[in-house]
Amino acid sequence: MAFAVGLSRVVEPAGVLPQAAWKLDARPEIGADEVRIRVERLNLDAASFRQLSAKHGGDGAAVRAEVLGIVASRGKMHNPVTGSGGMLIGVVDEVGPESPLPVKAGDRVATLVSLTLTPLVITDGLAGWDGLGEQVPASGHAILFGRSVVAVLPEDLAPELALAVFDVCGAPALTDRVVRGYAGPGAPVSVAVLGGAGKSGSLALTAARLAGARTVGVVVSDAERESLSGAGLADHVAVADARDPVAVSAAVVAALGGPATVTVVCVDVPGCEHGAILSTAAGGTVIFFSMATSFPAAALGAEGLAADVTMLVGNGYVPGHAEFALDVVRRTPAVRALFEARISAH
């Protein structure tokens, strides 16, 4: 078990798992159950990239330098402020003889585990990245453990598109599971997605509709409303600041005729917990997919509002989540177009 979860890679502090470690050993030599990946591209998670960009006033060179500094000092891409990282794509270099992962040397793959627990070395100084977008061309190597999750890249989608989808593939899969759990006689399930125009938000909205729910996408600007409305991915689109609990709740109730059965938070800024709780009906569920979520704020806020809601942490893994998300993109051209537009803009 110690090898399967990567304990041998933990440098400090001793006794914790790789995600909780401050520093990992990213040496290229692999253990019997490990896999070494030749890195081609990183995808920084939205919360981490937003924090770094804001900290440096949009100075791409400074963002690039800080990412390099984090990886060099920690042996992984683990933003110490947001606690988040991202994921990567690359080519399998070597597979240990005891690795249970379904890959072989030469496979082009995406890692479906966070960079916060993935030993990583960057060797090109990120020379091909301007620091202005979440997708980061890179050279180096990364290590996967026996308990890691990885997927071979599909041949029918561009690698950049597949990477962007895989980065948030837990959101649509868990949304689908939760919505279908409410299925049955009576009023139809309703779903509100805060941040509905983003990557995880658009996929969660689409998964909810495919599962038969009525939906509202809550966005922060008129431009996002036009984008989401034009894509036709939600039954209703509302503009509200997700950090304003009363405004968000009013927007959801006005759109759906009452609070949502399920509320999904896909906004990568702090302070959205109370609006999500207030927007959710008694007996409903709130799914937090944002790494900016404060779980004490969520728990204490629900208590203070006497809110009888189930709150779930979207941990990024649901069995079959990668295949599910790819299927959503393939079946829904408007979702694919939104992703491709985002990639092109970066």
Rank of each mutant, 00 (worst) to 15 (best):
V121E: 10
V246K: 00
A302E: 05
A192E: 12
P245A: 05
E34A: 00
G133Q: 04
K23I: 08
R108M: 01
A47Q: 11
L126V: 15
G257D: 15
F288T: 06
T215A: 06
G57S: 11
A110Q: 01
I30E: 15
G230L: 06
Y317H: 15
L120P: 12
I277R: 02
A204H: 11
T332L: 01
H56G: 02
P97H: 07
W22S: 14
K55S: 11
G283M: 07
I70K: 06
V5A: 14
A164V: 10
G58M: 08
S279A: 13
T116H: 03
V248M: 05
F289T: 08
S190G: 01
L194H: 15
A325L: 00
P296I: 01
A276S: 08
M291K: 01
A234N: 07
G316P: 10
A306D: 07
V252Q: 10
A192P: 13
T280F: 12
L300N: 13
A14K: 15
M1R: 00
E98P: 06
H274V: 03
P119A: 09
P18V: 02
V218K: 00
E323P: 04
V264T: 03
A54D: 06
N79T: 10
A238R: 00
G6P: 11
G230M: 05
V178Q: 14
A54S: 15
V178C: 14
V220K: 10
H321W: 10
P270G: 11
A183V: 11
R209T: 07
L161R: 06
R147T: 03
P159K: 12
I37C: 01
S229C: 11
V121P: 03
A213N: 02
L42H: 08
G230C: 13
A2H: 14
E340L: 04
R243S: 15
V335D: 02
I277V: 13
L326C: 02
P159V: 07
V220S: 12
L210I: 02
